[in-house]
Deep mutational scan, measured.
Amino acid sequence: MQFKLIINGKTLKGEITIEAVDAAEAEKFFKQYANDNGIDGEWTYDDATKTFTVTE
């Protein structure tokens, strides 16, 4: 399945899409990606669109 991350950071904005087995695997990848890029904010997930959003 495809999952999307929308980044609304103070210094980094954009979107990335990955293939993952389930939402838990996608969330783990996205949170590591955000951590690696210094993004720390509020997370939301929309199951209907398979979209995670992080907002700083």
Results as ranks from 00 to 15, higher is better:
residue 50 K to A: 07
residue 1 M to C: 02
residue 33 Y to I: 03
residue 39 I to S: 02
residue 39 I to W: 09
residue 34 A to S: 10
residue 27 E to T: 14
residue 20 A to N: 09
residue 13 K to M: 15
residue 51 T to F: 09
residue 10 K to P: 03
residue 30 F to C: 02
residue 19 E to N: 06
residue 36 D to W: 12
residue 38 G to D: 04
residue 21 V to M: 14
residue 39 I to T: 04
residue 20 A to K: 04
residue 44 T to D: 05
residue 32 Q to W: 13
residue 26 A to H: 00
residue 11 T to D: 05
residue 9 G to Y: 07
residue 17 T to Q: 06
residue 8 N to G: 06
residue 10 K to Q: 04
residue 8 N to K: 05
residue 29 F to R: 10
residue 5 L to I: 05
residue 53 T to K: 13
residue 20 A to Q: 05
residue 32 Q to R: 13
residue 46 D to N: 12
residue 46 D to L: 14
residue 43 W to R: 01
residue 12 L to C: 04
residue 52 F to W: 11
residue 56 E to L: 09
residue 40 D to H: 15
residue 23 A to S: 11
residue 6 I to S: 09
residue 46 D to G: 05
residue 37 N to E: 05
residue 44 T to A: 14
residue 47 D to N: 14
residue 1 M to V: 06
residue 56 E to P: 14
residue 39 I to N: 03
residue 2 Q to D: 14
residue 42 E to L: 10
residue 56 E to D: 05
residue 19 E to R: 02
residue 2 Q to T: 14
residue 44 T to K: 15
residue 27 E to D: 04
residue 18 I to F: 11
residue 2 Q to P: 07
residue 13 K to Q: 04
residue 4 K to Y: 15
residue 2 Q to H: 12
residue 7 I to S: 03
residue 42 E to S: 11
residue 40 D to R: 08
residue 7 I to N: 01
residue 14 G to N: 07
residue 32 Q to A: 14
residue 33 Y to H: 09
residue 10 K to W: 04
residue 39 I to Q: 08
residue 45 Y to N: 01
residue 46 D to E: 08
residue 14 G to A: 10
residue 20 A to G: 12
residue 55 T to M: 12
residue 32 Q to C: 02
residue 31 K to I: 06
residue 40 D to V: 06
residue 31 K to V: 11
residue 31 K to R: 08
residue 4 K to G: 08
residue 18 I to Q: 13
residue 41 G to D: 01
residue 12 L to P: 02
residue 40 D to F: 12
residue 33 Y to P: 00
residue 54 V to I: 08
residue 9 G to V: 11
residue 9 G to L: 05
residue 22 D to G: 11
residue 13 K to R: 08
residue 43 W to L: 08
residue 11 T to N: 07
residue 41 G to Q: 01
residue 38 G to H: 08
residue 3 F to A: 01
residue 47 D to V: 09
residue 13 K to I: 08
residue 5 L to V: 03
residue 8 N to Y: 12
residue 9 G to C: 03
residue 21 V to A: 05
residue 18 I to K: 09
residue 12 L to F: 12
residue 49 T to C: 03
residue 28 K to Y: 13
residue 22 D to H: 05
residue 54 V to F: 06
residue 30 F to I: 02
residue 15 E to D: 15
residue 3 F to Q: 00
residue 17 T to D: 08
residue 24 A to F: 09
residue 10 K to R: 09
residue 37 N to W: 11
residue 42 E to V: 11
residue 1 M to R: 10
residue 5 L to T: 01
residue 4 K to V: 07
residue 3 F to V: 02
residue 56 E to K: 08
residue 26 A to M: 01
residue 13 K to G: 09
residue 47 D to R: 05
residue 18 I to T: 13
residue 30 F to K: 00
residue 53 T to M: 15
residue 51 T to D: 02
residue 37 N to P: 01
residue 19 E to L: 14
residue 37 N to G: 09
residue 51 T to Y: 12
residue 13 K to A: 12
residue 1 M to T: 08
residue 1 M to Y: 07
residue 24 A to Y: 14
residue 48 A to I: 15
residue 6 I to Q: 11
residue 31 K to A: 07
residue 21 V to H: 10
residue 48 A to S: 15
residue 1 M to S: 04
residue 28 K to I: 06
residue 26 A to L: 00
residue 43 W to V: 04
residue 33 Y to L: 02
residue 46 D to M: 08
residue 35 N to Q: 12
residue 34 A to N: 08
residue 52 F to L: 02
residue 32 Q to N: 10
residue 38 G to P: 01
residue 14 G to H: 14
residue 20 A to R: 03
residue 13 K to D: 04
residue 43 W to F: 09
residue 36 D to V: 12
residue 2 Q to N: 15
residue 50 K to Y: 12
residue 12 L to H: 09
residue 27 E to R: 13
residue 33 Y to S: 03
residue 3 F to H: 03
residue 49 T to K: 05
residue 50 K to W: 12
residue 44 T to F: 05
residue 22 D to C: 03
residue 3 F to W: 12
residue 21 V to P: 06
residue 25 E to L: 08
residue 42 E to D: 15
residue 36 D to T: 10
residue 19 E to S: 08
residue 29 F to N: 04
residue 32 Q to K: 10
residue 47 D to S: 10
residue 27 E to S: 06
